[in-house]
Simulated scan of single mutants.
Amino acid sequence: MIDALIAGRLYGIAEQRTGHAGSAYVTCKVKAMTDDGDGIICNVIAFNDTVRETLLQLEDGASLSLSGALTPKVWTDKQGNARPALDLVAHSIQDLAFAERK
């Protein structure tokens, strides 16, 4: 696990779900740009109430920063190419609308 700060744009919309024990959580995807101009998708899950509520209010393409526990992964696309992926358990969030409210 890596303690990380990810900045990017919401890719799609966040979805609220319920776990087996009845606990609520939110999942979403964030597209972060790399140094070479490519984007990498970060799969995000949030259990924190503030993070969940904020993610659910954001629209597709909203700019945001998330911090939390990051796990790097590799997956193989249909052409057999190895591609990077990131999984983040988000503990805190800052979005553009939050910054404007401050």
Rank of each mutant, 00 (worst) to 15 (best):
E59C: 13
S67N: 14
T27C: 15
V26L: 05
A62D: 02
T50E: 15
L66M: 03
G80C: 07
A82S: 12
L66V: 04
C42M: 11
A82W: 11
A46F: 02
W75Q: 05
C28M: 05
F47T: 10
K29M: 11
W75K: 06
V26H: 09
D36W: 00
T54H: 12
S67A: 10
D36A: 09
I45R: 15
L66K: 02
A69C: 08
L70N: 01
A24V: 12
T50Q: 15
V51F: 03
F47K: 07
A24I: 07
R52F: 09
A62V: 04
Q79L: 15
M33K: 15
K78I: 06
D36T: 10
S23P: 07
L56C: 03
D77Q: 05
V26T: 12
I40F: 02
Q57M: 15
M33T: 15
F47E: 08
K29A: 14
V51K: 01
V26D: 05
A24E: 13
S63N: 12
R83L: 07
A62Y: 03
V51H: 06
W75S: 06
N43A: 11
T27R: 11
L56I: 03
G37E: 00
G61L: 01
V51I: 05
P72V: 06
A32K: 04
K29R: 13
C28N: 06
V26P: 09
V26A: 09
A46R: 04
R52D: 08
Q57C: 13
S65P: 06
Q57D: 14
C42P: 04
V74T: 10
R83Q: 09
T27M: 08
C42W: 05
S63C: 13
Q57H: 12
L64Y: 07
D38P: 00
A46P: 04
T76G: 03
L56H: 02
P72E: 03
N43T: 10
G80D: 03
K29S: 12
E59A: 15
I40D: 02
N81A: 09
S65E: 08
S67Y: 02
D36K: 09
I41C: 03
V26R: 07
F47G: 08
R83N: 07
G39Q: 01
L64E: 05
G68M: 06
Y25C: 08
K78Y: 06
D35T: 12
T54K: 14
T34M: 15
T34R: 15
R52T: 11
E53W: 01
N81C: 08
V51N: 04
G61W: 02
E53N: 08
V30D: 00
K78W: 01
K78Q: 05
A24N: 14
I41Y: 01
G39P: 05
N48H: 15
A82H: 11
K73P: 03
D60C: 09
K73L: 08
T71G: 09
L58Y: 05
Y25T: 03
K73H: 10
I40N: 01
D77G: 01
P72C: 02
L66E: 00
G61D: 04
I41Q: 00
L58T: 01
I45S: 13
G37N: 01
